[in-house]
C-alpha cells in the first residue's frame, strides 16, 4: 500500500513538474535541424558524388562505428574481451563438474525439442542480422548478441554438460574469440601494411580510398555492396561476440565441485 501511494506521488510529481515547465516555456522539444557533424556523417555515408570521401555503406551508424570512429570500437571490444579474461582469471583453479548429460537433467522434453528446432533458425537469423550490418540495422555485435540466445538456452534447457559433450568447451570458445579479435585487429591494419609494402601513403583503419591515399578495400563485388572493411569487421565481431557470450555463460553456469577454501 505504501508503495502504491509513493508511486502515485512520484508519477504526479513528474506530470505536474513537466506541466509547470511546459507552461513556463522551458521546453525540451528537440530541434528540427541537425548538428554540422551529423550532416557530414549523413552526407558522406553513401555518396557516389564524393568517391574519395565516403564509406559506401548506407547504414551510417555502422559506418560511424567501424569506419569514422573505428578506433573506439576496436577498444570497446577489447574492454569486453578483457572483462571476460578477468572473469577467467577469477575463476582459475576452480574444479568444475563434468558429467554425462542424462534425460533427467534440464527441463521437460517438449522444451528440449523446441530448442532443438529453433536453434538453427535463430543462428540463421542472427547471421543475417550480422552479415547485413552494413545495409540494414544490425552488425557484428547485434548479430552476436542475438546468436548468444542459442548457447544460453541450450545450457539452461539441457545442461552445460550437454554443450561440453557436443564439443563446445570453454577452451574452444576462447580460441574462437581470440581468433575473431585478431581478425578485427588485422583488418584494421591491413591497408596500412599494404601501403607499407607498396610504398603508398595509407592510414590505420583506412577503408575506402581518400584523396591523399589511393588504397581501398574492395567495396563492390559483382554488384554486391560490401563496404570494404565493414563486412570483415562485422564477420569477425560476430564470431568474437557470440563466442564471448558463450564463454562467459559456460564459465558462470557450469556447476562447481566443492570449494577448497
Amino acid at each position: 500500500m505504501k508503495r502504491v501511494v509513493s508511486l502515485a506521488v512520484l508519477v504526479t510529481i513528474v506530470l505536474g513538474m513537466s506541466l509547470l515547465l511546459a507552461l513556463s516555456g522551458q521546453s525540451f522539444y528537440p530541434s528540427e535541424n541537425l548538428r554540422w557533424l551529423a550532416i557530414v556523417y549523413l552526407n558522406t555515408t553513401y555518396n557516389p558524388y564524393l568517391p574519395d570521401f565516403t564509406v559506401r555503406s548506407p547504414e551510417s551508424v555502422t559506418a560511424i562505428v567501424w569506419d569514422y570512429r573505428g578506433l573506439d570500437t576496436l577498444y570497446e571490444t577489447t574492454v569486453f574481451y578483457l572483462a571476460i579474461i578477468a572473469g577467467l582469471a577469477l575463476g582459475r583453479g576452480v574444479k568444475r563438474l563434468n558429467q554425462k548429460p542424462t534425460d533427467e537433467s534440464g527441463l521437460s522434453p517438449i522444451v528440449k525439442t523446441v530448442t532443438k528446432i529453433t536453434g538453427p533458425m535463430i543462428l540463421a537469423v542472427a547471421a543475417s542480422i550480422g552479415l547485413h550490418g552494413h545495409l540494414t540495422p544490425g552488425g557484428g555485435f547485434q548479430g552476436g548478441a542475438t546468436a548468444a540466445v542459442v548457447p544460453v538456452v541450450f545450457i539452461v534447457v539441457f545442461s552445460s554438460f550437454y554443450l561440453l559433450w557436443k564439443g563446445v568447451s570453454s577452451q574452444r570458445m576462447l580460441t574462437l574469440r581470440s581468433a575473431g579479435l585478431i581478425g578485427i585487429g588485422l583488418t584494421s591494419i591491413s591497408l596500412f601494411l599494404a601501403g607499407l609494402l607498396l610504398g603508398l601513403p595509407s592510414y590505420v583503419f583506412q577503408n575506402i580510398a581518400k584523396a591523399g591515399s589511393p588504397l581501398s578495400m574492395p567495396y563492390d563485388v559483382h554488384g554486391a555492396l560490401l563496404s570494404g572493411t565493414l563486412w570483415w569487421f562485422n564477420l569477425f565481431e560476430f564470431l568474437a561476440v557470440s563466442s564471448g557470450f558463450t564463454l562467459a555463460f559456460i564459465i558462470l553456469m557450469t556447476p562447481e565441485a566443492e570449494e577448497k577454501w
Binding site: Q142, A145, T146, A148
Partner: peptide
Amino acid sequence: PDIVLVYLP
C-alpha cells in the same frame, strides 16, 4: 533500431 538491437539482448 541499432541501439534496440544491442540494448535488448
